[in-house]
């Protein structure tokens, strides 16, 4: 493989995105715009969640309409121990991963017996159950949500309440998750998952227990989303059942599709564009007419529609087509 083959539009964009994301704490300090570090942090955390969802959605063909539940579980796994004054991140993060993996195992074992639209609906049903469960928990705030008074404590010298430090923890997590997903997708396991997406009968005929493979993929995806949730809990310092509503799950799916579900890096583009649109459409509209920003859902909805109608393969697919040309 020669070097020039690597210089494709997609790789250039990926490199640029990762470099800019990597430099965000520096850039926001230089321009004295700490708020944009907030946006960047949110982007990076949601990118972890979206990339995890993409493992089953893009590569496995399992459309989960309930992944926000895992993010919520992860966040509550930080919030509830802190409520009882257990501050150690060595408790929070493993707990977030373990509980969401367990939830994924139980719900996945049932959900994966169904296919197609039934799978979409049953995953939504499970996430709604969790949503209403937390709504009913008066002790942890119910609908009012739970304020997280402290950040998870890790090593001395790694203070998560410092925005730049926290950002780098998230950024390194994202890079780690992307590398992990890359390895999974390209392993034998990943090939079975991908094969089962396009032709499950063939994979079964070849002797692969596809149900079990899919379940493992579902659990990995849920656990990683739970980890993203634990980061989210530390970031927002506030959690409420609202984080796990079906609308949030829908947003996660949209981020994946917008970025391109066929690629590892796609969801990162998706989250990036989604949050930047969400942030700046109202601003741009306000420039034209003061107060028009509250109607930002209109152009946003139109963009969403146009992407579905005309942009196959999302941003990543678009970049790939540039390469092939």
């Amino acid at each position: 493989m020669n070097l020039s083959a690597l210089i494709t539009p997609k790789n250039l964009v990926t490199a640029a995105v990762l470099i800019v994301l990597g430099l965000m704490p520096v850039l926001t300090t230089v321009f004295d715009q700490p708020f944009y570090l907030d946006i960047a942090t949110r982007i990076v955390i949601l990118a972890v969640a979206a990339a995890s969802l993409n493992l089953i959605l893009g590569f496995g063909g399992m459309i989960s309409f309930g992944h926000a539940a895992f993010v919520g579980i992860g966040a509550y796994a930080v919030g509830i121990p802190i409520y009882y004054e257990y501050y150690s991140g060595f408790l929070h993060f493993p707990l977030a991963i373990a509980v969401s993996a367990l939830f994924a195992l139980v719900t996945g074992a049932i959900s994966l017996r169904t296919k197609g639209v039934h799978f979409i609906m049953i995953t939504m049903a499970f996430s709604q159950m969790i949503f209403f469960l937390f709504l009913s928990l008066e002790e942890y705030g119910g609908d009012d949500g739970l304020l997280i008074w402290s950040d998870s404590e890790l090593f001395d010298g790694l203070a998560l309440d410092d925005p730049s430090t926290f950002y780098y923890v998230c950024f390194v997590s994202l890079v780690g998750v992307l590398l992990l997903l890359h390895r999974i997708v390209n392993s034998r396991f990943g090939r079975v998952i991908r094969g089962a997406k396009s032709n499950e009968k063939r994979m079964s005929a070849l002797g692969y227990p596809t149900y079990r493979y899919r379940l493992v993929a579902y659990v990995i995806s849920g656990a990683l989303c739970g980890y993203a949730g634990a980061l989210m809990g530390n970031f927002t310092n506030f959690i409420s059942p609202d984080m796990m509503g079906w609308g949030r799950s829908g947003e996660l799916i949209f981020m994946v599709v917008l970025g391109g579900s066929g690629s590892i890096i796609g969801p990162v583009y998706g989250v990036l564009s989604f949050l930047l649109l969400e942030e700046f459409i109202p601003d741009v509209m306000d420039l034209f007419a003061d107060g028009a920003g509250v109607y930002w859902h209109l152009p946003f909805g139109i963009i969403l529609l146009l992407v579905v109608l005309f942009v196959r393969g999302g941003i990543s697919g678009f970049l790939n087509r540039l390469t092939k040309r």
């Binding site: 715009q33 708020f35 944009y36 506030f238 409420s240 609202d242 509250v294």
Partner: peptide
């Protein structure tokens, strides 16, 4: 806007404070 939910309200608050 707080979007009638605590999470959105907190996000708007952060923006006002930091930006």
């Amino acid at each position: 806007d707080d979007g009638f939910t605590p999470a959105t309200g907190k996000q708007s608050t952060d923006k006002l404070l930091k930006q």
